[in-house]
Design a protein around this nucleic acid. Structure first.
Lengths: 345, 345
DNA sequence: CTGAAAGCGCTTACAG
DNA sequence: CTGAAAGCGCTTACAG
């Protein structure tokens, strides 16, 4: 254990060259004689020398470190985004730091100061599920952050935000889901979860409404329950819906905002004695790792979050200022089935 | 958007003082007159100035950034550890970067170089589930990393590793689990998952064996299946065990290495037509967020991973070189029940 | 209480 | 192909 790590001066002295030359071989510049290069390499090897990325950052202005802001790593959805982004960053020689952000500036913790001091080369921000009244606040925060570094957004980005972004076409996705269920004979299709006043037109429940229209089905307000994107909220919402309706009006299919909500719906169905999928089809979204192990295995949408994260990093580093869309895949499993036509009970 | 961020020189000029004075108010040193302090604060405010943490790091030798190495963020177990560590770090003014590490140096990706260059103030390494043949290699890698920064370990740490660490007492935990099941009348208790040749005496399956001994139960090799800690591996393992035994010898309870393995076991039980918990009790470990939503809800052990992560950060920053243990809680849910004494079929 | 100066460990023109 | 020198934006003794 060296008491002090070697510096570029030590290597220069050892190799009998100037620090400029050491710097050149460090950055593999071509104009160094192979003999010199060899001497320097050996000195580096011998002393186990690693250039300080921080000294390097001071002069070159680039720190090779990125940041990502997301609400909650405990939700596997975000863990997937983070993983995709982190791996892409590492491939490109960048480091990735996490900055959690609960509803941005409304939280006591304001990461903006911490972020500004870090001199990051770029920042990814996941802006999904924003409370509508925070809309302006969030936008202002993002603009403030952009003063310090390039920013790329992930998720449900309001169209008037002038930021590069990568996301799914949520509306198209949900239109497909409605068509999928309708194709199996479902006409009483509920949608559970999400913020009511969100003005983003690409959000999932907008696609739900459009899907109903495509299928010439009525929009039944009782089948649309708003709420947070958690399992508890999903369970409570379906429970309440069922309790509030005579059995003949119960939906035959439920679209959940995400898999967490869907997990709650499965639980509520179980407590109401509903057999999934015979009496109720349930479909989630995001395809969490546990979806195949729920009972019944949950049909869901793979939204390719890792790819989303990776693309965000590429966009960030390329400097392109555009919006991108990532494809999705319907993962058919056991929780959705053709509507049951036999009379119950 | 300023073309250039302000530096300490700009602030000094604006406030009509020297940069040393600006530095003093930045670091809230007491020996500054309140008039001067005020002038400087205003200049800072006016130009939206944030000191560069990287220039600061160059001189002060402390970067206020930590790193964490873990196998796979997609496993919620690690996401919990990361979250706990990250939040504690942030509270203390530190940033946390993730460095994934698949079986350390055996992977093509060697984070050591990247880490050494980063001049981190400390590093947390999760060393759980090490392939036994990598034992020496891993130890060597850890020693190499320690040349560059303090290291604290999390997880199953072999006792001969001379590193500060925080972990659960896995053996004691599993002894309790065996006693819990035995207390419900179970005597045919299986254990699924884990690496066979691991030499760490504090690992979970050692506790299983000790628990059997405590209960004066025989150790039946057929009830002990090794394998990876994944749902697929868990499912395959239980499936194989059941196929290889006459029904009268089937275990009445299964302890899974972790919740992922337990999820696989529930699936295997379902495919074999076994009713959990009536015909088979299943208990997991780590209490993943989905445990309550499995069917039946999975009994598990809450190993307080967030607390583990937080303690690791505290240990790292305090410089104390000791090993700590974190408590756990048995989360009783529906997947474990008293052994069924009525004759089957 | 305040400032001038050196130094942290690199990169980057600029000469040669 | 190589080196001397300035500079990145701070902190830290050292004077006063």
């Amino acid at each position: 254990m060296n008491s002090e790590n070697a510096t570029i001066y030590d290597i220069a002295a050892d190799a009998g060259v100037s620090i400029a030359t050491v710097s050149r071989v460090l950055r593999s510049e071509p104009n160094v004689s192979s003999a010199t290069r060899e001497k320097v390499m050996q000195a580096i090897e011998r002393r186990n020398y690693r250039p300080s990325s921080i000294a390097r950052g001071l002069t070159s202005k680039i720190t090779h470190s990125l940041g990502i802001i997301l609400p909650k790593l405990l939700n596997p959805h975000y863990a997937m985004i983070f993983t995709g982004a982190q791996e892409e960053a590492r491939k490109l020689g960048y480091t990735m730091s996490l900055f959690p952000w609960s509803s941005l500036d409304t939280d006591a913790y304001n990461p903006a100061a911490m972020l500004a001091e870090r001199r990051l080369d770029g920042l990814i921000v996941c802006v999904e599920y924003l409370p509508p009244d925070h809309d302006e606040l969030v936008h202002a925060s993002l603009l403030a952050l952009r003063r310090y570094m390039p920013v790329v957004l992930i998720g449900c980005v309001p169209p008037w935000y002038d930021f590069p972004a990568v996301s799914n076409d949520n509306a198209a996705m949900m239109r497909q889901v409605v068509a999928y269920l309708n194709g199996m004979g479902h006409e009483k299709i509920a949608f559970i979860g999400g913020v009511q006043e969100d003005k983003d037109p690409s959000r999932r429940d907008v696609g739900y409404e459009e899907g109903l229209r495509d299928a010439q089905l009525p929009y039944i307000a009782s089948y649309r329950v708003y709420g947070k994107g958690t399992a508890e909220a999903g369970k409570a919402a379906l429970d309440e819906m069922l309790k509030g309706l005579k059995r003949e009006y119960w939906p035959t299919a439920v679209i959940a905002l995400n898999d967490l909500v869907a997990m709650g719906c499965l639980e509520a169905a179980r407590e109401h004695g509903l057999d999934v999928p015979r009496q109720l089809s349930v479909i989630g979204c995001d395809d969490l790792f546990c979806a195949p192990y729920l009972s019944p295995a949950l049909t869901s949408i793979n939204t390719h979050q890792q790819q989303t994260g990776a693309r965000a990093v590429q966009l960030l580093l390329s400097g392109e200022r555009r919006r991108e869309t990532v494809a999705w895949d319907l993962m058919e499993r056991a929780s959705c089935a053709p509507v049951n036509t036999e009379t119950e009970e």
